[in-house]
Amino acid sequence: MEPSGLDELLERACRREPAALDELVCRYSRRVFGLLYRLTNERETAEDLMQETFLRVVRTIDRYEHAGRFEAWLFRIAANLARDRARRRGRRGDTLSLDGAEDDGTSRAAELSAPAQHADQLLVEAELGERLAASLDRLSDADREIILLRHYSELSFQEIADLLGVPLGTALARAHRALKRLQADLGEES
């Protein structure tokens, strides 16, 4: 279900009212950035892509049909931009990909997994979060993309499967495999 007032906001945004588009940036920039940061593992790249995402929204929103969910459309733009960026870098021979080679997840995880004696619960949680982020970096692009889309876009797996053009079973299998691997890395079992 659409968040309250979104329909009216989108109608105004389709007319390219600056205030409505500004409101969309304020509402979604954190989640879009979160997805892009976790997909690219680079703050600067994620900020560039977030900027491009919202500019594309402005340019193409008159073609957006409010039949589905706005989030599906918005996060598809963001995810496609991240994928295109990774592909371009791959062609140029850069080491960075959506697998996060720039940020060495292994060393970061090892560093953060050192025993935190006398640490309070907050620090333990923070450490776990960093280990989780490092573990995410080691997943394949396809597996990571699915669970990050689910986490940040709040779309259902069926919507994500539609968005990515794969069967629901494939999307769920990828997500299941990715989550199992994360749990194993963290030494947790469901």
Partner: peptide
């Protein structure tokens, strides 16, 4: 159910300057 694991991911936010820049560009 397993997706709840990702709730532990550290929050990441864009820089405030970046957001302001995006708002200006969008306007």
């Amino acid at each position: 159910r397993q997706m709840r694991l990702l709730d532990r991911l550290p929050a990441v936010e864009p820089g405030s300057e970046c957001v302001e820049h995006v708002r200006t560009l969008v306007a």
